[in-house]
Amino acid sequence: MLDGDREPATGADAPTFEEYAASAWPRLYRTAYLLAGSHADAEDLAQQTLVQAFRTWDKVSRADQPAAYLRRMMTNLYISGRRPKSRGLELLTDAPPEPRPGGGSALEDRLVLWPHVASLPPRQRAVIVLRYYEQLSEREIAETLRCSTGNVKSTAHRALKALRAALGSDTHEGEEA
């Protein structure tokens, strides 16, 4: 459930698109940032999602959970939008090919996993964000991504394995998954 406490009621007094968009925007933006990894891309992604929701608002507003509907739109936009160019454009990624010199800021030191989340392939990253930020169940993630729960499990497993490996190479603990 996305932002249950702030989600406008559905049904007879369904919200207008403006009302809904205004209340959903902060959460939408935060999730978009976790997916896209930069403010500019996050704004694009969240806006594209709103545009899509606007065009199909009749359908979205009648859904049991408009939030889940928007989440699916955004995840799909993110995954499909990334596919063609993800290797071509070096700009606006969080993990450039240059080696990072040691001695980052306190923030960078504290966040051990987030930098590696950015280097996951889009689908794995989406599963990680849906599971550990949106706190969705495997079944909900499967519905969001329109795939089987088995597929979600294996994708999550691969993502965690990659993160663990990245962490291992950071700290030289060398733990194998």
């Binding site: 698109f17 403006e18 968009a21 205004a22 925007w25 902060p26 933006y29 935060r30 999730t31 940032y33 976790l34 403010h39 704004e43 806006q47 709103l50 606007f54 966040l111 051990v112 996993l113 987030w114 989340v117 990680i128 964000v129 550990y132 930020y133 706190q135 965690l160 993160l163 663990r164 962490l167």
Partner: peptide
């Protein structure tokens, strides 16, 4: 690992300065 992941994602998201929503048509 999973706890750290969840904590860091929430931390990153929570610290974001959310820009104002773009003007709607």
């Amino acid at each position: 690992l999973e706890e750290t992941l969840s904590r860091e994602l929430h931390e990153v998201a929570g610290r974001l300065a959310v820009p104002p929503m773009p003007a709607l048509p």
